[in-house]
Design a protein around this nucleic acid. Structure first.
Lengths: 204, 204
DNA sequence: AAAAAACTATTATAGTTTATTTAGTTTTGG
DNA sequence: CCAAAACTAAATAAACTATAATAGTTTTTT
């Protein structure tokens, strides 16, 4: 059980950063300081490692979201946190990796990734609806469309070809893009809260 | 001069809808009801037609923007109009066409398209700055970042793979995405104006 | 005078073969 | 027992060739 965890951990690091096909089993083994033999004693093939790697990664993200949810008192605060987290999570994954899954691992793509994306949209819709009930978000929007729009916007902000981190620091994107996005769906009450929170952040 | 105009007009229709390489000179000639010979009397090669086609297209867009500018009394109104126009313009162009330019016509890409994109960003920055002066847009943003973000968001809204028009009607995207985007950069005064305008649209 | 058709030279594409890489297995050695 | 190295079979990619498409030209016809 110990070895298995280590392999998944190492595979996650390499796969998410380099892509799947670029990482050979030899590389994976030597980066872990173990032999291929040992890997194949625990996993029957590369696909199996990949699948477990992804499941673990998705699970970690959900736990993180769960934590943010408990730390946040208001829907507004929770939503801003989740968007920030979303960008960072997207940035941590090489786009090549996602492409490879779609092209070369269609079964994983449709079974795991698509399901996970649907889950994310569903969660976003839920938070926005909660915000509407709390009166911080506008009630004159089609929540489905807005959710989709916001999620797609996030992938732009995480796209290193468009907003490379060395030019557009996370804090800049937060201030100028995420806040713009959130403010856009805020009611007058929500905007008031958002500005209060931003000001208190500056003072602290 | 008459023939030249007709050729450019026809080429624009075909190229923008189908892409460059998919449209053969034979097709272009027969769609215009003229012979290839006649085309080659006016243009020396396909590249020349393509270049003039693009220049004409860009020029038309600028004239359209000019017109919107004169029709709009406030920066806010102008900005909303320009975003709507931007989406429709993007939708009218086959993404394949843009890809081909980048891949197969790099000289046109860097000389014309890049310049035009820079121009669009510059214009967006100018309008936002005008809005800030008029007090309708927030003055606590990095206008460069926000402009880039908004322009990139537009290409998402125009992307038929993400927001296919038959599911997401333009009016829906306008109400739920463009307004969200604009509201995001609005000051309190700007939001007031935006809501007044939306209400008056409903009543009329 | 211009369209239609025929033509050619060039280029892109599809299909094939060859070379390389790599997943997974087996063997060796500490 | 496990790492390291050697191995094989299968998949990928590279190189090449034959074929088809098409830009641009020339000839014929209306």
């Amino acid at each position: 059980m110990e070895v298995k965890e280590r392999i998944i951990e190492g595979a996650a690091q390499l796969f998410l950063r380099e892509g799947v096909r670029k990482v050979t089993m030899d590389q994976l083994a030597s980066s872990l300081g173990i032999s291929k033999r040992t890997i194949y004693e625990v996993f029957s093939n590369k696909d199996e490692i990949l699948k477990e790697t992804i499941l673990r990664h998705i699970n970690q993200q959900r736990l993180q979201t769960e934590r943010l949810s408990q730390e946040s008192e208001t829907a507004l605060h929770f939503f801003v946190s989740i968007l920030n987290q979303g960008i960072e999570n997207l940035k941590a994954v090489n786009p090549q990796f996602v492409n490879e899954l779609r092209v070369y691992y269609p079964s994983i793509w449709s079974s795991i990734i698509c399901t996970s994306q649907d889950y994310n949209i569903f969660q976003t819709i839920k938070i926005i609806q909660r915000g509407i009930i709390e009166g911080v978000f506008r009630d004159d929007m089609d929540v489905t469309v807005v959710s989709k729009f916001i999620i797609e916007s996030l992938s732009i902000l995480a796209n290193q070809d468009i907003f490379p981190t060395h030019i557009y620091a996370p804090a800049k994107l937060y201030r100028d893009s995420i806040i713009t996005l959130v403010r856009g769906i805020c009611s007058v009450k929500g905007i008031q809260m958002l500005e209060n929170e931003l000001n208190s952040r500056i003072n602290n």
